[in-house]
């Protein structure tokens, strides 16, 4: 009988603690911060809470928000459209003044933007956008096709317009993936000496990068470049290249310049990545949100600055350059 009693007491204590933590968190986050003028609350709907890129972006957003005296309410979608739609509904119910969204799907989130519009809440897209710009108050982002072209040109230059390229293209169906893949293929097609030997789709995880790159290396031992749609994939791919004993011969490219990737470039393992400076990006987005709230924003796309990080320029880069 005794262990049952203990279990029951433990259970109650855990539940109580949880309630307290929940309550504490809720209190802290909704506590009004003194600021001049109207107290704004902005809803934030991000795609992921574990991707370092979004984590850095969230950090920038929250820092800037604190500076501007704006409250932030966050919901996370875990890369699931249904969950993101639900999260934005919760934000609308909580009567936020604006919503900053990084939409997972180009079309699937339209319904949420419409709901926000109906409630009179401006929706601003960050990092990703939807297919209906008329529903977005602004888009703080970059032209994926342009980014893809930059990578494509870097690859072509690096191998002198001749060689084999494998593509770990990212999650199938994502707009960013479609556009970047398209751009890279367009650039590489200008060089008849370049052959694309693989085009594989997966979500952005290290495990997938490792697994797919292993497959690529088995099927094409003489591959010259493995393009990866983001750093997580690239970091996995680098492991596979090292295991195959081809470090330095196979060039792995990433995207996002997360700390691990920058370190990898510094160590001469990963060849290149592109910094989107997510923290600055988040800060910039909050500026845009504030302008939208005050009716001062004009236009649609607010383009961010990116930076190529490769083994040639890494020595001269400072941490601030990448944030």
């Amino acid at each position: 009988m005794n262990w049952k009693k203990i279990a029951k007491v433990l259970l109650c204590v855990t539940l109580l603690l949880m309630l307290l933590v929940t309550y504490g968190c809720g209190q802290k986050a909704t506590a009004p911060t003194p600021a001049s003028g109207k107290q704004y609350t902005v809803g934030l709907s991000l795609a992921s809470a574990t991707n370092p890129f979004y984590m850095a972006m969230e950090k920038g957003i929250k820092q800037k928000a604190e500076e501007l005296g704006i409250n932030i309410r966050t919901v996370i979608a875990e890369e699931d459209v249904g969950r993101q739609v639900s999260g934005i509904e919760d934000l609308i119910v909580a009567k936020v003044d604006a919503i900053l969204v990084s939409p997972i799907s180009v079309d699937g989130l339209k319904v949420s933007y419409e709901a926000a519009k109906e409630a009179g809440i401006p929706a601003i897209s960050i990092a990703r956008s939807i297919a209906n710009p008329e529903l977005e108050a602004a888009f703080v982002g970059l032209d994926w096709y342009e980014s893809g072209s930059v990578i494509g040109k870097w690859i072509a230059d690096e191998i002198g317009g001749k060689g084999k390229v494998a593509m770990l293209a990212g999650p199938a169906g994502a707009y960013m993936v479609l556009r970047m893949t398209e751009a890279i293929k367009d650039v590489l097609a200008e060089h008849p000496g370049i052959e694309i030997v693989a085009e594989l789709y997966s979500t952005h995880t290290k495990e997938n990068g490792l697994r797919l790159a292993e497959d690529v290396l088995v099927a094409n031992p003489d591959v010259d470049v493995i393009y990866c749609n983001n750093d997580e994939l690239a970091l996995g791919a680098v492991e596979a290249v090292e295991a195959a004993g081809r470090l330095g011969k196979v060039k792995v490219t990433g995207f996002n310049a997360v700390p691990g990737a920058v370190q990898s470039v510094r160590e001469g393992r990963m060849a290149m990545t592109i910094s989107l400076r997510p923290e600055s990006w988040g800060k910039m987005a909050m500026e845009v949100v504030k302008n939208v709230l005050e009716g001062k924003h004009e236009g649609y796309l607010v383009e961010i600055d990116t930076l190529v990080v490769d083994y040639k320029n890494i020595a001269g880069l400072k941490t601030e350059d990448l944030q």
Binding site: L11, T14, L15, M18, V21, T22, Y23, C25, G26, A29, T30, A49, R73, T74, V75, I76, S86, G87, D90, L91, V93, A94
Partner: peptide, 23 residues
């Protein structure tokens, strides 16, 4: 829904849901 409305950080939301399942 409640965790979202209370603006509980996402990681804690996961913890809370997990604790409920185990309980």
């Amino acid at each position: 829904n409640g965790l979202n409305l209370l603006n509980v950080p996402y990681y804690w939301q996961q913890v809370a849901i997990g604790v409920v399942f185990v309980s």
